[in-house]
Every structure is written in C-alpha cells, then in structure tokens.
C-alpha cells in the first residue's frame, strides 16, 4: 500500500495524480449541486401539484413522476446524451451535437436533476399530505384562499417534516453523480478508476474516492441536522393540538 502515488507526476497533463482527484471532486460537486437546484425546484412544484384537487394539474405531475421513477438512471443518462439530439428538430439537434459547451456535463446535470425531481416530488407530496386535514380547514375557515393555505400553513410545516428524507435525497444525488461517468464526465469515481488504470494502485485510488464520499456524507448530514435544529418549531412533537 503506497499512498505516495498521489504526489507522483501524472501520466499526462502535467501536475500530480492528486490533481486528478481534486478535479474529480470538483466535477462531482458541480454536477450534484446544480442537479439539486433543478431537483428541488421542479420537484417541489410537482409535489404540490400532486396534492391539488384539480385533475388537470395533478395528472400530468403523476405521469411525470411515474415515468422518471421507473426507468433506471443509467438508461435516462443515455437517452439524454444519445437519443435527445436525434429526436429534437434538426437545428436544435445539430447544435447539441456540435456547438453545445460541455455537453456531457450539462446532460448529466439535466438528467440527474429531472430524475431526482421525481423523488423530491414524492417527498413533498407525502409531507403535505401528512398534515391533518383540520389545518387546511382552519386556514380556509379564516377566509384564506387555497394558495394562501399552501403558502402560510401547509408548506411551512410540510417542508420541516420532510427535512430528513430530503437530506437523504440530497446525499443520493452525490452518489448518483457517479453514473455520469458513463457518458464521459470525469467525476470522482471516474478519476479513481483512471488513476488505478495508470498507476495500478487500485486500492489506494479507490480508498481515496471512498473517503471523499464519506466526508461529503458526513458534512451534509451534520449541516442538515443543524438546519433542522434551527427550523424546529418550539414544543412541536407530533400532531398539533394534542
């Protein structure tokens, strides 16, 4: 076991192998965070739509969730990267294939974002639906409109309730970012494999990658726990009123 391999000069591109690791970490973080932005916003909207009474709002959201949930992430990646440019109008497809900057990166971000959005939607939906109906009645009885009830009553409590499962989805995005290596994004896992191929230091390369993922998990978990503490409602232990 020889961890000094990381300060040895890399096979190509100058620098040392540690630079490859850092580059991998950078791409993992960028893909994950941008994908999360998409997942959280799109997923929240979808989740809220799934709780409404109007079928014209609810059904498309349900269709979206079912499609994106039931196809493996790898297959979705390939469809975004290989299939999409072929089925959009000619002009758009050509741009995607030739002029689009960093196509692997952006496809990975969009794919991961929209995939995770379907899971976030389910969390948001179940958070809102776990609030007793009486809360909605109380809001309506005051004269609040339905959008106002969502804004002032359902969403503030709903999001607090789902902080733990949302944390889990956030962590999952970091792990799922590794699937981007199949379309050529040189994120952390890809770099670890590359290093092992060039230096034959397989154990060391994968150990470093594993440790980094562990650190990411630890950091996110600690951060979310302190966020949960900050947002905690005093005295709230379960359903209100009892």
């Amino acid at each position: 076991m020889d961890f000094s391999v990381f300060i040895q000069p890399a096979f190509s591109g100058g620098g040392i192998y540690l630079d490859w690791v850092l580059s991998g970490i950078k791409w993992t973080l960028w893909v994950s965070i941008l994908a999360w932005v998409i997942a959280f916003t799109v997923g929240s909207v979808l989740g809220i739509l799934r709780t409404t009474q109007l079928a014209v709002l609810r059904v498309p959201a349900t269709v979206y969730v079912e499609i994106f949930r039931n196809v493996p992430l790898l297959v979705q990646m390939f469809i975004w990267y290989f299939v999409l440019p072929e089925i959009v109008p000619r002009g758009v497809g050509d741009w995607m294939k030739t002029k689009m900057p960093m196509p692997e990166f952006w496809n990975a971000v969009l794919c991961l974002g929209f995939y995770t959005a379907s899971r976030v939607a389910e969390q948001v939906r179940s958070g809102i639906q776990s609030i007793p109906a009486g809360q909605t009645y109380a809001g309506l009885a005051m004269g609040l409109t339905r959008p106002q009830v969502y804004r002032h009553v359902l969403l503030p409590m709903g999001y607090r309730i789902i902080i733990p499962p949302l944390t889990s989805e956030f962590l999952t995005i970091f792990k799922n970012s590794s699937v981007a290596l199949t379309i050529g994004v040189l994120e952390l896992t890809a770099q670890a494999r590359q290093i092992s191929e060039y230096t034959f230091r397989t154990f060391e390369a994968f150990t470093v990658a594993t440790v980094v993922y562990l650190l990411i998990t630890l950091t996110v978990t600690v951060a979310m726990r302190s966020l949960e503490k900050k947002l905690r409602v005093p005295g709230y232990i379960g359903s209100a009123g009892k």
Partner: peptide, 21 residues
C-alpha cells in the same frame, strides 16, 4: 453507514478490481 455513503458504481469497482487481487 460506510456502504450507504458510497455510490454503487464505486462498490462495483471495489469488488470487480479487488476480489481477484
């Protein structure tokens, strides 16, 4: 906790490359 912090692809690589070794 360890296995749940790692991507599945990384776990596949671990066993694929290191079991023979």
């Amino acid at each position: 906790n360890l296995l749940r912090s790692m991507p599945l692809i990384l776990v596949i690589f671990w066993f694929y490359f290191l079991v023979p070794i």
